[in-house]
Design a protein around this nucleic acid. Structure first.
Lengths: 226, 226
DNA sequence: GAAGCTGTAATTGTATACGAAATCATAGAT
DNA sequence: ATCTATGATTTCGTATACAATTACAGCTTC
C-alpha cells in the first residue's frame, strides 16, 4: 500500500496537470486533506515535493498556489531544454545500445499509429512523447542531467491539449522523433544534437505564439490559462 | 524571527557542508529536533528541502542520510556545470550592465587580496567564489538556469578544504575569474564561454585526482569522505 | 565461527490540537 | 464611489501522541 504522502502527491500532481486545479489557484492543505480523507501532515509533504518540482509556489504563512509561468519563463525553459537535451542526445549517440534503440523505435511506431488512424489519440502520443525524451536522456547515462530535465518536461504536459491540436505540427514532431532515432542509430552525435535542437526550438516557436494569444491567456500578463 | 523549519534547514546544511555530519551518516529527526529544541515537524520539512537540494538521501520508513557521491557522479556534475555555466556566461556577455560588472570586479579584488597576504583566507575565497558564479548566472537573466546550477555549486563547498589547499591551482582559479570578468566586459560571448568552460574543467581534473586518491576516500568505492 | 531468527528499541508516518499569521468581508470615512 | 480600517474566519506553523515499520543486538542453530 502506498503512503498517504505519495497518494496526496500523485493526486495533486494529476489534478494540476489536468488543469482541474487551475494555474494560480490556492491549494489549502486542509481541504485537500479532507478530500483524500487523510490529515494535513502528508499533504504538506506532498506540497513541498511539488514545490521542488516547480509545479507550485509556496509563500510563507500563506500557503501553496499552482504555479504559473510568464511567456518569458516559458522561453527560458525551452532554451534550457534545447541546451540540455541536445547535450544528452549527443552523449546517447556515443553509447546507446541495441535494446534502448529498439525501445525508441517502438515508441515512434506507436506514436505514428496513434496519428495515422482517423481519430488521433493525443493521450498515447503525449505519454509516449515524454517517455521518448526520458529514454533518450537515460541513454545518455547522466542521472543528474535526467533529474534536471524532469521538471522541464512537466510543462509541455500541461499545454499539450492546446499545443498539439489541429495542426500539421504533430506530424512534424513525430518526424523529428523518427529522425532523432535514426541519428542515434547512426551513432552520429552532431546530427543527433542538431535534430534534437530543431525539435525543441520548433515547439518553442509554437508555444510562444500560443502564449501571446490573449484567447488562451488568463489575463493581459500572458500567463498560461487553466 | 526565523521559522523553526528555516533554522533547522540552515543548521543541518551548515553541519553537512562543514562535514560535521559525515557523508553517509544517518540524520534522525528526533535527535536533531532535540538538539535545536524544536519538534520533529519542522525538522522533517528541512530534510525534505535538503533532499531536493541533493544534499541528503531519503529512504521510505528508514529516514535521511547525508548524500555521498561516486567519482562518476562528480564527473557528471562537472560536465553539467561546464555546459550550464558556459551557456550562462555567454548570455551574460550579451546583456551584463555596468553595476553587475563592477560587482564582479570587486569580488575578484577581494579574492586576490585574500590570497596575496601571507595567510590565505580560504573562507573569504570560497564564499566569494560561489558569489562570483552566482552573480554571473544572475546576469544571464534566466532564473531557472540559476536554480539548476545552485545544487551544482553545493558540492565544491564541501570539498573546498581539500581542493583548494596547498597548490598553485588557487592562483590559476583566481586568474580565471579575472579573465571571465574581462571577457564579460568586452561583451564577447565566445571568449566568455571558453574561459568559463576552462575554469570548470580544470577544477574537474583536480577533483578527479582527489577522489581517486584512497587517502581521502571513505572506502574503496571512491566516495567523498567526511 | 558464520548464518539465520527473534524480540526489543529506535525511528519514521500520520493524526490531532493549538497558537500565530494572513485573508476576506464588512463597515465607516473621505 | 473608492479607499481604509477592523473584526471574524481561514489557513498555516509547530508541538505532541500513537501506530507502523525498521534496525540492531543477542540468541540459536549448523
Amino acid at each position: 500500500m502506498k503512503t498517504s504522502a505519495e497518494q496526496a502527491y500523485e493526486f495533486i500532481r494529476t489534478e494540476i496537470l489536468a488543469s482541474r486545479f487551475p494555474s494560480g489557484s490556492r491549494l489549502p492543505e486542509e481541504k485537500i486533506a479532507a478530500q483524500l480523507d487523510i490529515s494535513r501532515t502528508p499533504v504538506r509533504d506532498a506540497l513541498r515535493r511539488l514545490h521542488s518540482d516547480g509545479l507550485i509556489d509556496l509563500t510563507a504563512n500563506s500557503g501553496a498556489r499552482v504555479a504559473s509561468w510568464s511567456a518569458v519563463e516559458l522561453m527560458e525553459m525551452s532554451e534550457l531544454r534545447a541546451l540540455l537535451e541536445s547535450f544528452a542526445v549527443g552523449l546517447a549517440a556515443r553509447k546507446i545500445n541495441a535494446g534502448e534503440l529498439a525501445n525508441l523505435v517502438q515508441l515512434c511506431d506507436e506514436m505514428e499509429a496513434a496519428l495515422s488512424v482517423d481519430k488521433v489519440d493525443l493521450d498515447v502520443i503525449s505519454a509516449n512523447n515524454v517517455t521518448f525524451h526520458r529514454s533518450v536522456a537515460n541513454a545518455a547515462g547522466n542521472s543528474r542531467l535526467t533529474a534536471n530535465l524532469e521538471s522541464l518536461w512537466t510543462f509541455p504536459l500541461m499545454v499539450r491539449k492546446f499545443a498539439l491540436f489541429g495542426d500539421d505540427r504533430l506530424k512534424r514532431s513525430l518526424d523529428h522523433h523518427r529522425e532523432i532515432t535514426t541519428a542515434l542509430h547512426a551513432g552520429d552525435p552532431q546530427w543527433a544534437e542538431a535534430i534534437m535542437r530543431t525539435h525543441i526550438l520548433a515547439a518553442r516557436a509554437y508555444d510562444a505564439a500560443l502564449v501571446s494569444d490573449p484567447q488562451l491567456s488568463e489575463n493581459g500578463q500572458s500567463q498560461i490559462a487553466s
